[in-house]
Structures are given as C-alpha cells and as structure tokens.
Nucleic acid binder design. Sequence first.
DNA 1: TATCAGGGTCGTT
DNA 2: AACGACCCTGAT
Length: 294
Amino acid sequence: MQTISDKIYFNKQSVRLRGVDFFDVCAIFECGQAFRFDKVEGSAHAVEYGGVAHGRYISLAQDGDEIIIYGADEADFYNIWRGYFALDADMAAIRRDILAHSDAPRLSYAAEVGRGIRILRQDAWEALCSFIISQNNNIPRIKSLIRALCERLGEPIDASDMLSHGARATEYTFPTPETICAAGVDVLRELKTGFRAKYIYDAARRVCDGRISFSEIYAAPTAEASKMLEEISGVGPKVAACTLLFGFGKLDAFPVDVWIRRVIEKYGFDPAALGDFAGLAQQYLFYAEREESK
DNA sequence: TATCAGGGTCGTT
DNA sequence: AACGACCCTGAT
C-alpha cells in the first residue's frame, strides 16, 4: 500500500492528513468529475467543499498540504474515503507514466495546471446515471438536476451536525436503480430531465433485471466494458468512458467531449496511445482548457 | 427579449 | 459517414 501521507490524525468526526502531495481540493471538485459537491462559503479553511458520496455527507477542507475530512471517523476513512479520494494511488508514478507516453507541450502544461487532480472512485450506478444526465447539458444544470433527483427519490441523511460545513439539515442519498424503476419514467420527466428521462429509466431497468451486470463490467477490459454500457439507450462512447473512468476505476478510459475535441483541434494534440492512465491525462486537458476559457 | 450552446446520442439519409 | 432533432436552462 502506497504511503498516504506523512501523518494521519483521527477524531470522532474528522480525519486530518498532513503532507499530502498532488492533491488540490478545488481542482478535484471543479474538474467536472463529481456533481454533488459544492464550495462551502465562509469556511474557516482556505478551501472547503461539502457533498454526498457513498451515502454519507462529508466536507473536505484544505490548507496547504493539510487535508481534513469532516463527518468521517477512522472506520469510514479506511472503508470509504481513502479509496474515494484515491489516497492510496502513487500519483508521482502515474504522472511519470502519462508524460512518458506523450511529449505534447499542451499535455505537460495541463498536467501542471491540473497537478492536484485525483480521479475519484465514485459509485458505479451514480456515475452512470450522472453522465447520462450530462449529455448535451451544462454543468450548473447537471448539478441541479442531480440534486432534484436525489431530493425526490433518494433517502434522507441527517446532516444536522454538518451545518457549519455547508450541509443542509437534511441531505439525500443517490437513488438506487430499484427506486427509479419503481418510480417510473414520468417522475423523471417531472424533474425536467427532458429527453434523458427515458435513458435514465432504461439504464435503471437494465441494471435491475440483470441485463447490465456491474461485476461483469468491472471484470472486462475497457473496450469490452464500454460496449456493454453502450447497450443502454442514451449511452454512447463518451458517457460510457466517463462511467468507466469515474465509476469503475478504469483509468485508461478516455472520454472525448467537446472540450477535448477543441484541444485536439487547437494544439494538434494526438490522444492515441496515452497508456494505462489516459483518463487522468484527459482530466488534465479538460480542466486546463476550461480554466482558460473563464 | 432573443439566441446560442451545453462533459452527446439517436434516428434517418 | 453525415446531419438534424432533442428537453431545458445558463450565459451573453
């Protein structure tokens, strides 16, 4: 197991890590991989983001190389958050591998801009559903649609002790495929998901009746896993790649979206043969391009 | 107020 | 392989 950080301190409701490198809370949550975390305004820390993942509300604060996870104890840290935040990944080695596969100046630049990005290990169903919603949509609306979906069909979480960390008194889990099946496609329409309603419903149906098997997708190589996901109506190569990258930990998945097309066009960037960690390279390029457009 | 575009995909040529 | 349609809304 890779060294997580120099020191870890556990309290009843928080975990503090010191000496963490390649970890930028702002970049992690602003690079468009997770839609349920928001910046905590008026935080006592330099940066703090709060949100729900794996059925729990937490916030992640950062001051320099010190990270604090609020709302987590030692058991949660080892069972959930160490993996979720990829704290066991050898980022230096991964970055060396990426840069050894391509000497494109734009990539080395973007890898510096996005130095602190980590690919979060999100729940597979949540990732699938979220990136179905993301198609032909903008990030603010994607976030508000997902919030509405969770408030309507998710389970309430008592987050009253996290109010000072950006939580509402009640937060909601991401709804299961079973819940979405039971609710029906009309509920998804009411939430104004538009033409995506039938796609979300089809995905839920296929997961519930076993036509989509997450364990088979996990076991399959990325190209085959993508074909399995593409059986779902409304899932093409891009949504499948995002699902595999963020929900199944397949770091070689390389989502090609409008921003990456732009990078390929503008810089003559060649995305072929980026290696086993192409997905992180994609996040570097995506993040750098979007930051520049602001 | 009007128009464009948004982390794409589908159905039709 | 190319092209328009698609729900709705954030941005200009």
